[in-house]
């Protein structure tokens, strides 16, 4: 279970020099990568960035052994419910959450990683018909769930030892919330995208979970998913992906879009499009955004990377000869892309 070291290999063609293969992780006991993420691991006074890989029945923690070499530190065996998502907690160490379920999330569990006391624990954080979950700064997890016609939007706080403290209920919109994003630099502001293509803004503090504004994204890009939000000069900028957008002559086949909203008037305007590179057939499948970098798996089995400020594709990873790409995630820190293949191999690229 020691990952093989690799010499960085530049890609040919588009993105040459912008993505360099650094390491390859392959869990010999798993056949299919469900998700991949990173987590800070603090032990004996030092802090290291570890990789977390998930397959349906287990979650593995990988530790850097030497530059470009990784070793498996621990494996959590899960029960009968398959893992479907890792829910990373930004600015937190030794703690990660996972979502388990079939078609939708049925459970959120936290996994604790403290080696000194050999405490690699797991425990239930929330159960229900959960539609979306996101880890936030300050060891918080927001989630939306539905029981019949009633929707609950809830913020859960975790202590340093993982145990859940009291939750806070946020005012739900009528329609189901399908994705969340923190508003960067505004700890009390949170946005979400809904099933009818609206952006919802909440005020999240210890006292209230007010719903401040609901703004429609527009009919041209249905089923938008929010990935990132920030406020600048009185406008709220939201990075959206468009898994169901139709190809158009003016914008090509859009994957990501930066939209500026005026929260005071609920008016909006598209700022930048990031479309599939010319010659790439198919559409956006799933992706991840960190700062101004966006990465997405395309239906062709390739991974494309964009600079959102320029709206340009900067790198393209074609599908491998034996396995196509299934996952694209950015590491918590540093310019590192985690790319998962269908056969369970996870490749780390320096970007």
């Amino acid at each position: 279970d020691v990952a093989e070291p690799l010499t960085p290999v530049p890609l040919g063609g588009l993105g040459e020099e912008s993505l360099q293969l650094v390491s390859k992780l392959k869990d010999s006991s798993s056949s299919c990568a469900v998700d991949v993420s990173t987590v800070w691991w603090e032990a004996a006074g030092s802090r290291e960035l570890c990789v977390v890989t998930a397959c349906e029945s287990s979650v593995c923690l990988w530790k850097p052994l030497a530059p470009d070499r990784w070793g498996k530190l621990y494996t959590w065996q899960l029960g009968d419910i398959p893992v479907i998502q890792i829910v990373p907690l930004p600015d937190t160490h030794n703690l990660v959450c996972i979502a388990l379920g079939d078609l939708e999330i049925g459970e959120i569990r936290w996994l604790l990683l403290y080696s000194e006391s050999d405490s690699f624990k797991q425990s239930l954080l929330k159960a229900g018909n959960i539609k979306a979950a996101l880890g936030l700064k300050g060891r918080r997890v927001v989630n939306s769930s539905r029981t019949g016609q009633e929707q609950q939007v809830e913020m859960l706080s975790l202590s340093e030892l993982g145990r859940s403290r009291d939750g806070q209920t946020l005012m739900p919109p009528e329609e189901t919330v399908l994705a969340f994003a923190e508003v960067e630099g505004m700890r009390e502001a949170l946005v979400g995208t809904t099933a009818v293509n609206s952006i919802v803004v909440w005020s999240v503090n210890l006292k209230t979970g007010q719903l401040l504004r609901k703004m429609h994204v527009g009919y041209s890009y249905p089923a938008s998913v929010c990935h990132r939000a920030y406020s600048d000069s009185g406008l709220l900028f939201v990075v959206l992906s468009h898994p169901h957008a139709k190809e158009s002559e003016s914008c090509g086949n859009p994957a990501f879009r930066v939209v500026a909203f005026n929260p005071k008037t609920a008016q909006s305007r598209g700022v930048m499009f990031s479309s599939l590179p010319p010659g790439q057939a198919g559409r956006y499948l799933e992706g991840d955004v960190r700062d101004a970098s966006a990465a997405a798996v395309l239906t062709s089995g390739a991974i494309a990377v964009w600079d959102l400020l320029l709206g340009q594709c900067t790198a393209l990873l074609p599908p491998g000869p034996q396995s196509s790409w299934a996952l694209a995630r950015w590491a918590t820190t540093g310019a590192c892309l985690l790319a998962g293949q269908r056969d369970g191999t996870v490749c780390l690229y320096r970007y």
Partner: peptide
């Protein structure tokens, strides 16, 4: 507060909407 093509904008939009919203 200033005018834009998205209507009047406010740098304090979050505080203002929080004060206006029902608790």
């Amino acid at each position: 507060c200033s005018e834009s093509d998205l209507g009047p904008i406010s740098l304090n939009w979050f505080e203002e909407l929080s004060a206006e919203a029902p608790p």
